[in-house]
Structure formats: C-alpha cells, structure tokens
Nucleic acid binder design. Structure first.
Lengths: 203, 203
DNA sequence: CAATAATGCGAGCTATTCTCAGTTTTCGGT
DNA sequence: ACCGAAAACTGAGAATAGCTCGCATTATTG
C-alpha cells in the first residue's frame, strides 16, 4: 500500500494533507530524499508526526503523491502539443520541434523537482510503472501523428515508443547532467534534427 | 568519502573484502538495496559488522564498489566492439548491429545486477558521474567511427553522444521493463534500423 | 621472540521510521 | 443548543538499522 491509508473527508484534513505535501516537496528538494526525515517534514508542516502517518503510510508514499501530481501536470502539457497538432496538422519537423520543446520545458521549469522524482522513481516500485504508463500514452499519441504523416517506418507504434524513450533520456542528459561546454539550445536542435532523420518518410 | 577507508594489505583481508562484496551482491539482488541490512551482509559473508565497516565507510560504498567492477567489465566489452571495428572497418549498419548487440548483452547477462546499479545510481552522487564518464567514453569512440564513415551529420561528436544515451535508454526499457506483448529481438532490430536512418550519411 | 602493525570482533550508541492509546475537534440529528 | 459518534490530531516510545569504538587476535618485521 503506497497511497491509500485514510481519505481526508473534512476541509481541515484536506488542508493538512496539502501542507504536508508542500513541506515534503520543499525539504526533499533542499536536502534530498535520504537527507529529509519524516519528523522534520511534520515539524515544518506544523502538524504532529502522527497526523502525517494518518494520510501517508510511509515515507515513499509522500514521494508517490508528489510524482502523481507532477506527472498529471506534465501529461496535460504534452496533451496540448497533440491537440494543437490535431488542429493544425503540422509537418513532422514542426511537430518534433513542438514536442521536444515541450519536454525540454518540463525539465527546465522545476529542475530540482524533476530530478528528485526521476532519481527516486526507479527504487519505488509503483513509480516505475507510473512513469512507463505516461511514456506509453505519449508514444500512442505520437504514433497516430506518424501514421498521418506516413512516417516512422513499418511499425510506427514501436518507432514512437523508441522516440519518446530516446528524447527523454537525451534531454535529461543535456539539461540535468549537463556535459560541460555544450550549449543547450544547440543540443536541443540536434535532438530535433536527429529524430527528424530517424522518423521521416522515405522520399 | 565513498571508497577509501583502509586498503587491505594482507592476503587475509583481501579475501575478506571479496567475500563481503560477494555477499552484498547476492543480498542486494535478492532483497533489493533498502531490504538488505549491513548486518545481514556481514553475517552472510561470515565476518563481523566491524570488519565490514573497516573497508567500506558506509552502505553506499558497497554499491559503488560493485558498480566500479561492473562498469570496468562493461567498458571492456564495448571496447572490443570498437577494436574489431578498427580492424575490419565495417559499414555503419554492421557497426550498429555489433554495438547494439553488445549493449543488449550487457543488459541480459545479469539483469538483476544491471537493474540494481542502474536504479540506485541516481541517488548515489559519485555513481552518476561515473556512469556519464562511461557514456562519454563510448560516445567518443563512436564519434571516431562516424567520422570515418562520413556519417552523423555536421557534429558527429554530439550525434554519437545522443545515440549512446538513446540506445541505452531504449534497450533498458525493452529488456528490463518490458512492455507486454513485444518480442525482444524485433525490438532490438528496430533500434538498429532507427539509428541507422538517423546517422547514415546523406546519399 | 618481542614489538609493532594489521585485521577482526560485537555490544551498544544514535538516528529514523512508524505505532497506538488517548485527546480534541467537527458533524448530523433532535 | 445539546449530545453522541466519527473524524482528526497528538507525541511518547517501540522497533529497527546504520555505524562506532575499545579491545582481542593474528600476521609481519628486525
């Protein structure tokens, strides 16, 4: 059990949950996951440790809750890219520019939070699945666009999945563990060019 | 300090270190990192907890030592791919087949160990750097081959880095967090095809 | 064969997660 | 307004895991 312990019913307790999550986010970002104790989180939130454990069965559950929130928000951003695409039917290059730009923004908007969740995700069972889900959802949408553009080769579904996985890894490497001396915008441009060549329909 | 506490000088202590690492590897793989206590490791290794902490300053150091060993071994495997390439000067497609196959083997040979290290790496400061180093080293070698083949576009160095990051992420997703219903060898083939299109010299 | 250095030992100190019995606050019905 | 029940809150402390330190044992050196 990672999320469900007790559902807050009254207004008071909903605020308690919110203030706990806010405190957790701040302390995790400042001192890292291991460097933050649940007692400190409760203290900072101005509630007792008992209240914290009334809504979160363990420390990991705090992380899962933060990730849930973050992933939902991210999914909305990416969904907008595809709803724009459905309307304007852009070229492959324009679509990739939009998509890669969006994912890059997700990294740079709140880099600490992004890194925190990404770093902790692998060791928290539920989170890996959740991340993969988001990945597949985006890949599904991308696959649709590739079919419209007659791009992505014989198996657009698979190509789309590989593209999503690749783009995420490349941008993560570029924006969060920056190899020294490379300029960011050139890096992003290179990612777009590369995927354009990989996915473009044969001429 | 993550590695250096005391250097084992006598034969006896070198065996102690070896048996501790062996026990750590087994227990980490069986019960996960968090699910393994240092006391259990010492017990399984047949040494006292004090001896363990004489050579490893903390629990993370055990992980770093295992990673060090694994990365060295992996680097050798990949180096062989490029020394073969230097001799036979293969086509881009053959080179990619060899490289991707090699990286895939690294994932499937000891999947538990690979996943363990990969999952824990992000939260262990020294390990991230160490992984990125390995990545850049491989990218450097690949960049050389791309230049020979006049492939990889205007900046073969950057293209090579993106390729290495992408391939690792895609194979990791395919082999360790398998999306249901996809066959593995087809997946690997798709990765090769995709990178061939992305990197091939314009005709 | 001392004297010295290296290695090994494990009870217990410290810090952290999480529980639980009891108190306070809110809510619904009369 | 009042009361009983449910929800929310509290914090001492149980349980556990990482790690230390003083001392015992084994190897090396001169």
């Amino acid at each position: 059990m990672l999320t469900p312990r007790k559902q807050p019913r009254q207004q008071r307790s909903r605020e308690t949950v919110a203030v706990i999550l806010e405190a957790a986010a701040q302390l995790f970002q400042r001192h890292g996951y291991a460097g933050t104790t649940t007692n400190k989180i409760a203290e900072r939130a101005g509630v007792s440790i008992g209240s914290l454990y009334q809504y979160f069965p363990n420390k990991d559950a705090l992380l899962v809750a933060l990730a849930e929130h973050y992933l939902t928000q991210s999914a909305e951003q990416v969904a907008q890219v595809f709803s724009r695409a459905a309307e304007h039917r852009p070229s492959l290059h324009d679509l990739l520019t939009d998509l890669v730009g969006c994912v890059a923004d997700l990294h740079t908007d709140r880099p600490e939070l992004h890194r925190l969740l990404f770093d902790q995700a692998p060791r928290t069972p539920g989170l890996v699945t959740r991340f993969r889900q988001a990945e597949q959802q985006i890949a599904g949408a991308l696959a649709g666009e590739l079919r419209r553009l007659r791009a992505g080769g014989p198996d657009p579904g698979l190509s789309a999945l590989l593209a999503v996985q690749g783009i995420e890894a490349q941008l993560h490497g570029a924006l969060l563990d920056q190899p020294d001396g490379r300029d960011t915008s050139g890096h992003v441009q290179a990612v777009i060019r590369l995927w354009h060549r990989a996915l473009a329909a044969a001429p």
